[in-house]
Design a protein around this nucleic acid. Structure first.
Lengths: 272, 272
DNA sequence: TCGTCAACATGACGATTCGTCATTAAATTA
DNA sequence: TAATTTAATGACGAATCGTCATGTTGACGA
C-alpha cells in the first residue's frame, strides 16, 4: 500500500484540498470537483437555493451518484464547498480592492465596495455563506472543508484588520484605550454584513424601497467610521466621489458585465 | 351558502389571521394553531433547524397530517408562521424596552438590548427569521401570512423610526440635510442585525472568541450613534452603566430565567 | 504484455420527507 | 332529523437523501 498522506478511505475529493496534487489521476479528480461545483453554482443560480438537489446535480452531470457523493459527502458538504468557492472569490475581489490608491479610509471603502458588489453579483451565494454557518450545515460537512472555510474567514478578517492597523500607523485613527483593534474591525464587519444582508432581503421586503440602496452601505459605513474618528471625516472629504472612483477604477469590468446583462452571468433566474 | 368573508376553500387556519374570531369552532382552531406552533418551536429548539419536519410535527401532535396541512400549507408556510411568532415576541420585548426611563439615546439602546436578548434567548428562531426572508420561503408561504409578516416588520421599523424622531424633537440629534430619517434608522437596524447575526455565528466560527461578545453590540452601536452625533456622545456618558441598568430594570426576569437554566426554556438542545 | 489489487464508478435500493386526495366524520343549518 | 357544509383522516405517490454490493479502471511489477 502506498503511503500517501492518509489517502486511505478518504475518497477522491481530497485531491483539491491538499496543497500538492500528485498523480494525474488526482488532478483529473480535482478538475472534476471544480466542474461539479460550477455546475452546482449554475443550478442554484438558475433554480434557486432549494432548486439545488443532489439528484438534480447527478442528473445534470455525466457522472453517477456514487461519484458525486465521493466528492461531497452530503448536501451540506456541497453547500460548504460552494461557500468556500464564494469566499475565495471574495478574497480575490478584496485583493483587487486593495490596489485602489487613496487614503487609509478610502482603502477600507474599496473593500466594502468589493463586498457589496460581490453580494449583488451573487445573491444566492450570499445566502449560501449565511446558511453554511448554520450548525445544520457545519455538523455534516467534511472536517477538511470546515477547516478551509475557517482559513478563508481568517484571511478575510486579516485584510480588514490590516486596514485598521494601516490607518493607525498612518495616524488617521486612534483606538480608544483598552479597546483591541479586533473590536473596531468587528464593528466594520458587522455593519457591512448587516447592510448587505438587509439590502439583499430588501428586494423581497419592499420595506426599504424608498431607500437609495445603491449608496446605503457607503452611508452606513461612513457614519461608523466617523464615530471611530477615522480621518478624514466624511464632512471633510467627498467619499461619494471616492465610491464612484473605486467602481470606475477597480471594478470597471465587473460593473460593465453587470450592466450589460442586467444581472451577473448565471444569475438570471429566480431564487425559489 | 353562507357569506363569510370568503372562508370557502380556505381551511381552518384563517381563524387566527382575521381580526375577529367568530364562532367557538374557529376559536378552537386558532388555539390549535398556537398549540402546533409551540410544538414546532420546541421541536426546532430541541432538534435544530433541520430537525423540524412536517412528519415529525404530525407524529408529535395528536392530529393527522391533513389537519396539520390545513393550518400550514407547506413547510415554508410553517416556517413563516414561526417567524411571525418570533417577531411578535420581539415586538413585545421592544415595547417593554421603551418603558426604560432615560435620554433619547438610552431608549434606543434599550431596544437594542431587547433585540440582542431575544436573539440570545432564541437563537434558532433568529435563523428562522433570516430564512423566512429567503425567496424559497416567501414564494411558498400563504399570502395572508406574508402580509402579517410585513405588518410586523413595519411595526418594528416604526419603533426604531419613532426613536429617531424623538431624538430629533428633543434636540439630541440633527439629521444631515437631504438625508431622510429612514436612512439613519436603517443604519442602526443594519448594525444591530449584523452584530447579532455575527455574534450568533461566532459561537460556531470561533473567530471572535477573544471578542467580548457581551458588550460588542453596545460598543458597535455607540460608535455608530457617535458618528451620527447623537447626544450625549459616548465620551460624555457612561452607556455601559446604562446598558446594565436596562438589564436590571427592564429585563430582570428574562435574565434570571436565562441564568438559572443556563439557557432559555426550550432552547437547551443543539441546532443541527 | 499481462496479472493483480487498491482505488474508483455505478445505479438499484431503503429510508425520509413532502404534499395530495378520496373517504370518513363532525358540525351546522333547515 | 335530514341535508349540507366543513373539517379530519391516513394511505398514497413523488422526490430526495444517502448507502452499498457489485462492476470497472488504471497503476505497477514481473
Amino acid at each position: 500500500m502506498n503511503i500517501r498522506f492518509g489517502c486511505k478511505n478518504s475518497g477522491p475529493s481530497d485531491g483539491c484540498l491538499f496543497r500538492k496534487i500528485k498523480t494525474k489521476r488526482q488532478l483529473a479528480i480535482a478538475d472534476r470537483e471544480q466542474e461539479l461545483l460550477s455546475l452546482a453554482e449554475r443550478l442554484m443560480a438558475e433554480e434557486g437555493f432549494s432548486g439545488l438537489t443532489m439528484d438534480k446535480l447527478v442528473a445534470a452531470c455525466s457522472y453517477s451518484k456514487g461519484t458525486v457523493y465521493n466528492h461531497f459527502s452530503s448536501k451540506e458538504d456541497l453547500l460548504c464547498a460552494l461557500c468556500i468557492k464564494c469566499m475565495e472569490t471574495e478574497l480575490t475581489m478584496f485583493s483587487q480592492a486593495l490596489t485602489f490608491e487613496g487614503n487609509s479610509r478610502e482603502k477600507l471603502l474599496a473593500v466594502c465596495y468589493a463586498y457589496r458588489l460581490h453580494a449583488v453579483l451573487n445573491p444566492t451565494l450570499f445566502y449560501c455563506v449565511l446558511t453554511a454557518k448554520t450548525p445544520a450545515v457545519s455538523e455534516k460537512a467534511k472536517p477538511e472543508r470546515l477547516q478551509r472555510q475557517q482559513e478563508l474567514e481568517q484571511q478575510l478578517a486579516d485584510i480588514c484588520n490590516h486596514l485598521f492597523e494601516h490607518a493607525m500607523a498612518a495616524g488617521d485613527l486612534q483606538s480608544p484605550p483598552a479597546v483591541p483593534l479586533s473590536q473596531l474591525s468587528f464593528a466594520a464587519w458587522a455593519m457591512a454584513f448587516g447592510s448587505n444582508a438587509l439590502l439583499l432581503a430588501a428586494g423581497t421586503t419592499q420595506l426599504l424601497k424608498e431607500l437609495q440602496a445603491e449608496n446605503a452601505l457607503l452611508f452606513n459605513i461612513n457614519l461608523l467610521l466617523d464615530g471611530m474618528g477615522w480621518q478624514p471625516l466624511s464632512r471633510d472629504w467627498d467619499y461619494k466621489a471616492s465610491w464612484q472612483k473605486i467602481g470606475q477604477e477597480v471594478f470597471k469590468q465587473e460593473l460593465s458585465t453587470f450592466r450589460e446583462q442586467g444581472m451577473a452571468p448565471g444569475q438570471r433566474g429566480k431564487h425559489p
